[in-house]
């Protein structure tokens, strides 16, 4: 799973949510808000005989990046799949609302970093989780309207599925690794509902070809592709180059971008077919090359955009 060339460096995929935060921010600068000592836990898991966590799998706070204040939220994919639920969602929504309200004050932040690692809505709290996703989207867009970029960092074990994928698409920018996956309905759920001939979830190569970071980056569904080490995530988070505003011009540009994608690739059945139509050299080999070679090939496509 861990690419050979970063096997000796701390891996994002293998790290806990707290380790990821520590690796992205300036050392020792993180202050957690409503941390585990407050013991704000899910009141609903007991109904299902499931153990709660003191942080409900969501860590929020503020810290510094290159000395600039930032707000940060990280989902712990190892607890209940990093799911959106009543408490975990409200912590994120509270952080985003505070960040939006801070714009123009002495408390303002230069960016909000969302370290997504989520299977989507927590089904044991489905209604609260669904609403939390909707509230998060509204709050993310309010932060962007206040002129503060929201950056999604995706490369954890749980990926960004369900509502998490919609939240990602509403951020100013999506940063992804090869191991990162984004999809609305997970392959297992599609298989359960529509059969293995529609989507064989045990075909790992297929799953990665459809949902993985390389496919997303080539199609324009992720804006930055990076190696899977923690240092690369820090470097990506520091990249402040003109994130798109959330306004009518950006939405019109996104409309055109997404319309064109359907026109060009709407009849394709698998990603190598798309890559061949993009005139990429050796489309079948895209999954085989190493990260450095892939990053070079991605840059050569000239597909970078700010229409998000």
């Amino acid at each position: 799973m861990i690419p050979q060339d970063i096997a000796h460096e701390p891996s994002w995929y293998e790290s806990s949510a707290r380790a990821r935060i520590d690796g992205v921010l300036d050392p020792g600068s993180f202050t957690e808000l409503l941390g585990p000592q407050c013991r704000i836990m899910s009141p609903h898991l007991a109904l299902f005989d499931l153990p709660p966590a003191f942080d409900d799998g969501m860590i929020v706070g503020r810290g510094l990046l290159d000395g600039h204040p930032v707000a940060v939220a990280a989902q712990e994919g190892q607890f209940m799949g990093g799911t959106f639920a009543e408490v975990s969602g409200a912590k994120l929504v509270g952080l985003l609302r505070a960040a939006a309200a801070s714009a123009g004050t002495s408390q303002t932040v230069s960016a909000v970093l969302l370290l997504l690692d989520t299977g989507g809505v927590r089904l044991q709290e489905a209604n609260a989780g669904e609403l939390a996703v909707s509230e998060t989207i509204r709050a993310v867009l309010a932060v962007r309207q206040a002129g503060i970029p929201v950056i999604a960092l995706i490369g954890g074990r749980a990926g960004a599925f369900g509502g998490g994928s919609l939240v990602a698409s509403c951020c100013s920018r999506i940063v992804m690794t090869e191991q990162g996956r984004i999809s609305v309905t997970g392959p297992e759920v599609i298989e359960t509902n529509k059969g293995a001939e529609e989507f064989d979830s045990r075909d790992r190569a297929l799953v990665w070809r459809v949902t993985g970071g390389r496919s997303r980056a080539l199609l324009g569904g992720a804006d930055r592709y990076i190696r899977g080490d923690v240092a690369s995530f820090r470097a990506a988070a520091r990249d402040r180059a003109n994130p798109p505003a959330f306004d009518i011009d950006t939405m019109r540009a996104e409309q055109v971008r997404l319309e064109k994608r359907l026109e060009r690739y709407g009849d394709c059945h698998d990603t190598p077919e798309i890559w061949a139509r993009m005139n990429l050299p050796d489309p079948a080999g895209i999954s085989e090359i190493d990260d450095a070679a892939f990053i070079e090939r991605l840059a050569a496509t000239g597909g970078a955009h700010d229409a998000r």
Partner: peptide
């Protein structure tokens, strides 16, 4: 809609948009 094709084309971006 739950299809491999829609997910491949980035359904999350269409819903998010």
């Amino acid at each position: 809609r739950m299809t491999r094709r829609d997910e491949m084309l980035g359904l999350y971006e269409y819903l998010g948009h």
